[in-house]
Design a protein around this nucleic acid. Sequence first.
DNA 1: CTCATACTGCTACAATGTTGCAATAACAAG
DNA 2: CTTGTTATTGCAACATTGTAGCAGTATGAG
Lengths: 150, 150
Amino acid sequence: MSAASRPLPDTAARTLISARGGRVTRTRVAVIEAMQASAQPLSHDELASLLGSAGQDVDRVTLYRTLDWLVEQGIAQRIASGERAWRFELHHDERHRHAHFHCDHCGQILCLESTTPVPPPDLPAGFAIARTEWVLHGACAGCNTEGPRP
Amino acid sequence: MSAASRPLPDTAARTLISARGGRVTRTRVAVIEAMQASAQPLSHDELASLLGSAGQDVDRVTLYRTLDWLVEQGIAQRIASGERAWRFELHHDERHRHAHFHCDHCGQILCLESTTPVPPPDLPAGFAIARTEWVLHGACAGCNTEGPRP
DNA sequence: CTCATACTGCTACAATGTTGCAATAACAAG
DNA sequence: CTTGTTATTGCAACATTGTAGCAGTATGAG
C-alpha cells in the first residue's frame, strides 16, 4: 500500500482519543465512528458485526478492552439494557437524566434524551449518586400497532 | 421419617403457588420464603447459597427454571442490577415506579420503595410501557463515609 | 530510522444462562 | 391407600458474555 505518513485521517474520533493521551488505533477510531453513526446504543456483538462487515475484523477481546478504555476515559458509557449484554453509546451529557426505551418485542433500544429530566429521588442520608439508569420496557410504535411478535 | 400426609405446611408461599395452578414443590416454596425473608433482591447465586446452607441443595438449572416460572406467574420480578446477573425479588406493587440503589463499592442493592414516584416520561406516540427499571448507582451511606473500597 | 511500550490477538478460562431428555414426585381419581 | 398422568427435577452438554496472561505488532516520540 502507498500509505501516507499519517495512517489515519484527522477525524473527530482521532481528536477524542489523542486528547486523552491514548494511541490512535484503527479499532478505537472504528468503534467511535460506529457509535457516532448509530442512533442507538450498540452491544459488543453488534459492534463486532458492524466493524466486520466494514471489512474491519476485530478480535473479541480487543473490542472488549477498547470499550472498557472508552468508558474509562469518559468517551463512551455503558448501559444495562435489561438483556444479558451491555450496550454502549457515546457519552453525551452529565451522566444523569437520560432514559432508554427497550422494546420487548423487537429488542430495539431507543434513547429518550428529550423526555422530562428525571428528578433525583429522596435518598437516605449519606448516599451519593454517581449516575442513574432509567430503562423503560414495553412495545415500540411499530410493534405496538402490529401486535406482539413471539 | 414419620412424614405427615401433607408433606409441606400450608404457608403463604404454598397459597401463592397453588393459586396459579402450579405444583407446590420444595424448591418453589424455599425460593419464595427466601425472598420473603430478604430485604433485598437476590441473585441466582445468592439464592443457591441460601438454600444450600439451609440444607436444601437445588440444581442450578432447576433454580433458573423456578425463577423463570415465578416471574412468568407474576410472583417475582427480575431486576437488571447493573452487574452481569439478574436479581429477583417478590413482585410488590403495580410494576411501575420502584427504584433500586446499587452501591458500586460494596455491591449491595437497596429497594427504594418510599421515594417519590417516578413520573412517566413523554414517549413518542404509539409506545406502550409495560414496566420501568430505575437503578441509581453510587455509594451507600456506609461506603460513602468510609471512602471508596478498591 | 530506531526504540520503548501501549495495543492487539491468541489461547484458556470464568460466570451466567439454556436445551434436551430420562427419572421423580405431586396430586387427582378410583 | 394405590394407581396413573404429567408437571418438575436433575443431569450432561452446550451457548453466550466477559476476563486473564502473554508473546508479538504497530504507534508515536526522539
